[in-house]
Computed example of a mutant assay.
Amino acid sequence: MTSPRILIADDHGIVRSGLSTLLRSAGFEVVAAVADGVQAVEQACALQPDLALLDIRMPGMDGLQALREIKACSPGTVVVILTTYANLEYLSQAVMAGAAGYLTKDLEPERLPELLQTVLSGENLLDERMLQRVLDEAAREIRTEPEELADLTEQEIRVLALIARGLNNQQIAETLYVSRNTVKTHVRHIFEKLHVSDRTQAAIWAVRHGL
């Protein structure tokens, strides 16, 4: 089995070193460990890692701008924010820019490798209470009759609505009495048609459009 390739960006050397050691011991291949957002973007664009783990406050370019640029040049890279700040505005910006996870540094270290494997499997790593607040904000901006909705099949609309309720692929499969692989296909088509990169962006899109 191929080791997941990960890029780490944090302006504190001791954090980079600790994360590198922890993740290597858990089977990850650390392809780069950099100190600022500019280097993070350069290395991500060049190396196309499976995952980028970014701090927010870094010199040169912050993690949120780095996230946007990484998703532009390496759309297949899953990006997770690891920060000191449990800040709703940061979370909202990160989610809308394409982050698949937002974790705070008070996380127990031994949980991090497992959580990163989870996000690599296609699930999101977002605090449910904070995510609900983002969805509540999105609900206040409901738009009607979106053109993109007409491009979705009836089954894709059902799947999208269940994604917005927080169900994972297995739960959606059980709800709709279809296979998990069928759900995965629907989810992929939804992402393509809505031009989003992950489940959280799809959920926010669904809430904003009244699903």
Results as ranks from 00 to 15, higher is better:
residue 154 E to F: 07
residue 126 L to H: 15
residue 114 E to I: 07
residue 102 Y to A: 03
residue 74 S to E: 10
residue 209 H to Y: 01
residue 188 R to I: 00
residue 45 C to G: 13
residue 188 R to H: 15
residue 97 A to Y: 10
residue 23 L to W: 14
residue 85 Y to E: 03
residue 106 D to I: 00
residue 199 R to M: 02
residue 107 L to F: 09
residue 110 E to W: 05
residue 7 L to V: 12
residue 52 A to T: 03
residue 1 M to G: 10
residue 137 E to T: 13
residue 179 S to R: 05
residue 148 E to L: 08
residue 177 Y to C: 00
residue 168 N to V: 03
residue 31 V to I: 15
residue 85 Y to N: 08
residue 79 V to Y: 02
residue 119 V to S: 06
residue 113 P to C: 06
residue 173 A to S: 09
residue 192 E to K: 06
residue 56 I to W: 01
residue 127 D to W: 02
residue 57 R to I: 02
residue 141 E to W: 13
residue 126 L to S: 13
residue 163 I to S: 05
residue 150 A to E: 14
residue 11 D to W: 09
residue 4 P to I: 05
residue 124 N to C: 13
residue 140 R to Y: 02
residue 180 R to L: 09
residue 47 L to E: 14
residue 97 A to P: 01
residue 96 M to W: 11
residue 42 E to W: 01
residue 146 P to V: 08
residue 118 T to Q: 10
residue 209 H to D: 00
residue 26 A to Q: 00
residue 22 L to I: 05
residue 191 F to C: 01
residue 208 R to Q: 15
residue 73 C to H: 00
residue 64 L to A: 04
residue 115 L to V: 08
residue 8 I to K: 02
residue 161 A to K: 07
residue 19 L to S: 03
residue 83 T to L: 01
residue 163 I to V: 14
residue 22 L to P: 10
residue 58 M to I: 00
residue 114 E to M: 11
residue 14 I to R: 07
residue 27 G to I: 05
residue 20 S to K: 15
residue 172 I to K: 04
residue 175 T to H: 04
residue 62 D to L: 05
residue 80 V to K: 11
residue 163 I to M: 08
residue 160 L to I: 04
residue 23 L to E: 15
residue 211 L to D: 09
residue 85 Y to S: 03
residue 55 D to G: 00
residue 50 D to H: 14
residue 189 H to T: 02
residue 10 D to P: 05
residue 98 G to N: 11
residue 108 E to W: 11
residue 85 Y to F: 15
residue 48 Q to E: 11
residue 100 A to S: 14
residue 95 V to P: 11
residue 180 R to N: 11
residue 111 R to F: 05
residue 38 V to K: 10
residue 98 G to Y: 12
residue 114 E to Y: 07
residue 92 S to H: 09
residue 117 Q to E: 12
residue 106 D to E: 13
residue 143 R to H: 11
residue 4 P to L: 07
residue 113 P to D: 07
residue 113 P to M: 07
residue 207 V to Q: 06
residue 15 V to L: 01
residue 70 I to A: 02
residue 198 D to A: 03
residue 105 K to L: 13
residue 30 V to P: 06
residue 126 L to K: 09
residue 179 S to E: 02
residue 142 I to Q: 15
residue 78 V to M: 08
residue 69 E to P: 06
residue 157 I to K: 15
residue 187 V to S: 06
residue 73 C to M: 04
residue 73 C to G: 03
residue 34 V to I: 09
residue 126 L to N: 12
residue 101 G to V: 05
residue 74 S to N: 12
residue 42 E to M: 09
residue 34 V to Q: 11
residue 123 E to D: 08
residue 135 L to E: 10
residue 89 E to S: 12
residue 101 G to F: 12
residue 65 Q to N: 10
residue 69 E to C: 01
residue 37 G to M: 09
residue 7 L to N: 13
residue 96 M to A: 13
residue 70 I to R: 02
residue 21 T to W: 12
residue 148 E to A: 15
residue 74 S to A: 15
residue 100 A to D: 08
residue 29 E to Y: 10
residue 107 L to C: 02
residue 17 S to Q: 15
residue 25 S to G: 04
residue 121 S to P: 08
residue 119 V to A: 06
residue 174 E to A: 11
residue 13 G to I: 12
residue 170 Q to R: 13
residue 9 A to V: 12
residue 190 I to F: 03
residue 145 E to I: 14
residue 51 L to E: 03
residue 32 A to D: 08
residue 23 L to P: 15
residue 41 V to I: 10
residue 196 V to R: 00
residue 146 P to G: 11
residue 164 A to S: 04
